[in-house]
Design a protein around this nucleic acid. Structure first.
Lengths: 215, 215
DNA sequence: CGAATGTGTATACACATGTATATTCCGCGA
DNA sequence: TCGCGGAATATACATGTGTATACACATTCG
């Protein structure tokens, strides 16, 4: 069971002095990228500089930037799954709208999980094939967990969805697109955006129920 | 043919190139970018090479690659508006589903309009502020035209939408996200994707109608 | 005709990048 | 204690980049 994802490991299963770790390089990369800086334009040397190591030391951890990028996506995926878990937990322990609480949690984490989720949200469409596959894999995870949740929630309400898989995909893509958009806006607008997204999801879900009845 | 009295140049017949235009540079850029090549990683020299001109000649047309990128987005925007027009035309002259015909047209143009729309669909989240604003501007156009159309269509059916602006935005973002996804898939899957997207839009629209009744 | 102007090119420079090779450093077992 | 082996660095090189400067040619206009 891998426990260390974000926090530097303090373990010593084998004798280690490990001046530099993969996590350090990932963190350095996150510090570099930003709203105007895409992952694909970050150079190996730049990461090494930010991490305070010699360029060649990079190779001890990754074959090249492509490999680091994939590792970053995997990290972001873990973070994303944590969010889902939190949202699910919060949603079931409240009387407020499940949709609303979930969207709120998502946005909150988007702001907190500095830069990590950004990569997942906005860099999905460009990069090496390996990279794009890594992104798609995480999206598929999200989609699938959402699908299961949707079915469960609908059943609890005594209803059924029209096409759960499609609903899950639509919601996933829409939320990610809106999330990417949100990252370019000041946090003050978050409440507004949360409201917008919630309404959109409500439309999709309501539509799904309605279509189920007529189909 | 008098030669310079300094270094005798290697007798390369210096032939004058035909005048270069902005369009040539834009076309050259489109030839360079692809599924694994983002606009932000394309260099000025590379564009010049592809266009068959000296690097410095680039400056006669654009200040830098950033300016060229914005011009590309504007171009893509025009192309997009042509698509909307076509879809509207086709949709009104048929008994088939408006949604379906529109989505089909969109996908068709996506495949035809080689590379141009790709830029708009997938590079929206990274780049200079000017670039991102250019992308957002085009998205807003699309959104707004769609909103007007939706209202008109709903009225023709004697119905009203819940929140036309929101519906338009949801559809826009969803279609663009799915379109970006489609570009990474073989055209054989287009029919399937068209079906998926159409269903998603149907859910949103149906949901909007339903919510209008209950709200 | 000849100068002015506008457009394209060649050359050059000062960087940055990825990586091959050689070198230094340091903890550990002998 | 030594020295050995791996980790980290330093140096180096070939290549790519943006762009400044100087030049060549064509066209326009006095």
């Amino acid at each position: 069971m891998p426990s260390s994802l974000l926090i530097p490991t303090t373990d010593a299963p084998i004798v280690r002095k490990a001046a530099i770790s993969r996590e350090d390089l990932l963190a350095a990369t996150l510090k570099i990228i930003g709203p105007n800086r895409s992952l694909s334009t970050v150079s190996l040397r730049e990461v090494a500089r930010e991490a305070g190591i010699a360029p060649n030391s990079f190779y001890r951890q990754f074959r090249d930037m492509g490999e680091l990028s994939v590792a970053l996506i995997d990290l972001a995926g873990s973070s994303l799954r944590t969010i889902i878990g939190q949202a699910r937990e919060r949603a079931t322990s409240t009387d407020r709208s499940v949709i609303r609480v979930s969207v709120e949690t998502f946005m909150e984490q988007l702001r907190a999980d500095d830069k990590l989720l950004h990569v997942l949200l906005r860099e999905g469409a460009v990069g090496s094939d390996d990279f794009k596959h890594a992104v798609e894999r995480e999206l598929a995870y999200f989609e699938d967990e959402l699908r299961v949740d949707l079915i469960r929630l609908a059943a609890a309400d005594g209803a059924t969805l029209y096409q759960p898989a499609l609903v899950a995909r639509a919601i996933t893509r829409l939320v990610f697109a809106m999330g990417a958009m949100a990252m370019d806006q000041p946090p003050e607008r978050d409440p507004e955006l949360i409201e917008e997204i919630s309404q959109m999801l409500r439309m999709i879900l309501t539509g799904s129920h309605a279509l189920n009845r007529t189909a």
